[in-house]
Simulated assay, not measured.
Amino acid sequence: MSRQLTVRLTRPGSAPPPTESAGADLTGGWSPHVWLGAPAPGGLALPAATPTMAWMYSPRGVFVNDDHLVVADSGNHRVLIWHGVPVDDEQPADVVLGQPDGTTEARSGGDRGPDNGMNLPTGVLIHHGRLLVADAWHHRILVWDTIPEASDTPPDFVLGQPDRTTVEPNAGGDCSAGSLYWPFGIALIGSRFWITDTGNRRVLGWDDGIPEPGQPADIVLGQPDATHREENRGSAVNASSFRWPHSLAGHRDLLLVADAGDHRVLGWSPHPANDRPADLLLGQPDFAIAQEWPYAPQQADRFRFPYCVALDQSDSGAQILAVADTANNRVLLWDGVPADGRGADAVLAQPTFSANGENRWSAVGRDTLCWPYGICLSGDLLAVADSGNNRVVLWRRS
């Protein structure tokens, strides 16, 4: 995001989260505005055998700003782009990438091969007019120097592979500062470009924005060096380790990483210039615990596979933190970034902080979720990749 964000860490003594009294509104003023993809309310809509520009299959990544919505339609191995923020339910996309047209679905571009195909794309990002896609199971990042206006536009270059046809983990060699294995998340925060290199259980950072092809990372976070790739550094979970780092957020002096496999979000302030322990923790009582909620005693401050984290300013200038608590079928929101690990201020898609049912164990509705995987904040607009319901839902705060 180009929006400027002043980081404010809320300290102990901050106001507690809303109480769960009967009938209490815990949404913080957020409500669903538009859904894209499978219809709602009603029963779960399975994806069509033949894709369309309006339907999706298990979308895992989403990006929204004032001018575009971008969705990683992961199950269809493609990316969909809307020019302008959609205003109508089930509005079809304007552009499709990774497939020759809007009705084709094939891994790696089918017979065309991976040169202009995708295999489970996840993270999507627009930065200063450039489009980036984490083509996760091809172990690479795709980069377009301008936002494509036409479908099936090939990327201008790739990161993590020597060319557009090589798709081996770690480029077919050993783990290094320039290789990738299941990269799921991408972010440009301040002047640094970050990738969650999930299969290598680490986060890579480049100091001067989007790197050139073949350029090794300046920062390897979560491993003792660029050649190691063990879960939690091959030891017990700690403040310097990841199991499944999956997405990133932050700004200037704050880096946040959703470590889905350890059921937590880690934070560094200021940004780490090298491998070092995290300063901030959400979702666990301490850095040595990786307990999976709902087995933990608290609910507003515990996660179960949090696959995405987002941070931005509201239209009024207040800071908003959001976490996709994926396996609990909800999105949690905080006013500010809590330095004390306190529970969320609001919850979306569940009636209380202690509920966690898929679609509330009921029918699909406008305000229900089933495995929300990716999220993106743009002021008072929240885009949610509701992967289990095969749709994206745009929420707004009044």
Rank of each mutant, 00 (worst) to 15 (best):
G222S: 11
G283D: 03
P211M: 11
R330E: 00
L394S: 01
P32E: 03
L221V: 12
P270T: 10
S247F: 12
E168Q: 12
P297G: 04
N238S: 15
A363T: 13
L125N: 01
D89V: 02
I289H: 03
W268N: 07
A40K: 00
A239H: 06
G388C: 10
G185N: 03
A136K: 01
S387L: 04
G129T: 01
R3V: 14
G209C: 10
H33Q: 10
I81M: 07
E358F: 10
A322L: 11
W371S: 07
W82K: 00
G28P: 00
V64L: 15
D208I: 09
A327Y: 14
I186G: 00
H128N: 09
W371K: 06
G261V: 05
V220T: 13
G75W: 08
W30Y: 05
H228R: 15
L204F: 07
D335K: 10
V34L: 05
T227W: 14
L256G: 07
C308I: 01
P372L: 13
N390G: 08
L254Q: 04
D275Y: 08
V95W: 14
S74N: 11
A226M: 10
N359H: 05
H127F: 14
G75S: 08
G250L: 07
M1T: 12
L321G: 04
Q350G: 06
N116V: 15
D315K: 01
L5I: 15
L46A: 15
R391H: 06
N65H: 04
P338Q: 03
L266H: 10
A38F: 02
V133I: 15
H77Y: 11
I219E: 06
V392C: 02
G43C: 02
P59T: 13
G222I: 13
P114Q: 14
G129P: 00
L369N: 02
L280Y: 11
S14A: 14
A38T: 03
L280M: 10
E90F: 07
L332W: 03
E105K: 13
A93D: 01
R140S: 11
D152F: 12
L381F: 02
L188H: 00
E230D: 15
W334H: 01
D207M: 12
R202K: 05
G234L: 09
A339L: 02
Q99K: 04
H139P: 00
N389T: 14
N356K: 01
T104V: 15
A24H: 03
S314Y: 08
T326N: 06
N76S: 15
A239C: 06
C370G: 12
I195Q: 00
A385S: 05
R192T: 14
T122M: 12
V265A: 03
F193K: 00
D145F: 05
P216C: 04
D208M: 08
P51W: 12
R164E: 11
G29W: 03
G84H: 04
R330A: 08
P51Y: 14
G205W: 05
A40H: 01
